[in-house]
Computed example of a mutant assay.
Amino acid sequence: MSDVAGPVRPTEMPIRLIDPKGTAVKGKRTAGFALPDVEILLRLYRDMVLARRFDAQVTALTRQGRLATYPSALGQEGCEIATVAAMSGNDWLFPTYRDTIALLSRGVSPVEILAFFRGDWHTGFDPNVHKIAPQSTPLATQALHAVGLATAAKLRGDDAVAVTFLGDGSTSEGDAHEAFNFASVWAAPAVFVIQNNHWAISVPVAKQTHARTLADRAIGYGMPGYYVDGNDVAAMYAVVRAAIENARAGHGPTMIEGLTYRIEAHTNSDDPTRYRGKSEEAEWRALDPIERLATYLTEIGALTDTVRAEIMDAAEELAERTRDAMNTDAVLDPLELFDHVYAAERPALREQRAFLAHELAHSEGAA
């Protein structure tokens, strides 16, 4: 792929390296991509198991009222974990609000991640340390940020690649169009990973586009486009890895659509039974990305009972650390609200700070 400098039309069927039964795929369906090494596949399996346990624990904490809201990524682990694993330490990730497990896989601690979801900070981690931009709630805005950073890296001679996640609903936003066009015109080293989980809250893909696939849009912008089985973590890793190296080599951006499914509700405030049926959910549960890879690794003798037990122990230890993080109350200073608004504090802001400080002091005295 690294010698591709122009549009590549997505395949009719999603690229696949391991089928739903856990068997290695050969022939045209692979589109020429090779199955990653066993060591990489084992790491992908481990990271997906940890991510799912973390996701389940955070969902439980939200239902207990210990977090304000949480958008689960259950079922989408293949897209997210493969993408992060394909990145280098110098590459930047631009996530959406649903991509928490990607942050976890890239090294952000549970307490830093959950600061966002319990309202302590908008971003509880240092973006420069992890090379991760703040999680974006507005749809598609982070895609433009990613292209901006990628273009700046190119002008500096830095080999960093900017990778951004988008949902299928995000691709209907004007910001997405601007990001795709900007990236292609400027040959920015950017990779757009579209997680097509079938539902933009309650709006199905069929009501958003008449295109054959979302990845088909890539050719209109003059960039390569790939349509991938998003529940095949091996295929996602191979394609994203190739796209990143293509961008790093100076060939510009790539659009990748990972076909997957959102098993849980949009957030804990959503009722998916109002717009989709149980049979659809059951169909996609049978295509579980973790079980697919586990079957393959077990069949080739790489995933032994010992290895599986070690991974499960690590997942439970992570869940315990996550619970412990929520048992510690955050130390909050309301006056921090004014600290990062302007480089030089303005008189009006100073007055507002003084007013709030007076109110806080009065309320503490009354107590």
Rank of each mutant, 00 (worst) to 15 (best):
A183R: 02
S279Y: 12
V58A: 06
P347C: 14
V331N: 11
V161Y: 08
R292K: 10
G78C: 02
T306S: 15
I81Q: 06
Y226M: 10
L214T: 02
T213D: 07
A102P: 09
E359T: 05
A34K: 15
T260L: 00
H266Y: 01
D91M: 01
M1F: 03
A56S: 13
L259C: 14
V4K: 01
R52W: 00
L356S: 03
A354V: 01
Q142S: 01
N268D: 14
A309S: 14
L214I: 03
M48L: 10
D159A: 09
L42H: 03
N128I: 07
E336Q: 11
Q142H: 04
E39K: 13
E310P: 10
S170I: 04
D270M: 12
L360Q: 10
P189M: 04
H177M: 09
T11P: 12
L214N: 02
S279N: 14
L93M: 08
P20R: 01
L214C: 05
A366I: 05
A206Y: 13
H340R: 14
Q208A: 00
V129C: 07
L287C: 10
E283W: 11
P204F: 01
H358G: 10
R46I: 04
L149F: 12
I194F: 04
L144W: 03
G258K: 00
E280D: 07
V84T: 07
F33M: 09
Q195S: 08
H145K: 11
A247N: 00
M48N: 05
M312G: 08
V203Q: 11
F180P: 08
V233G: 09
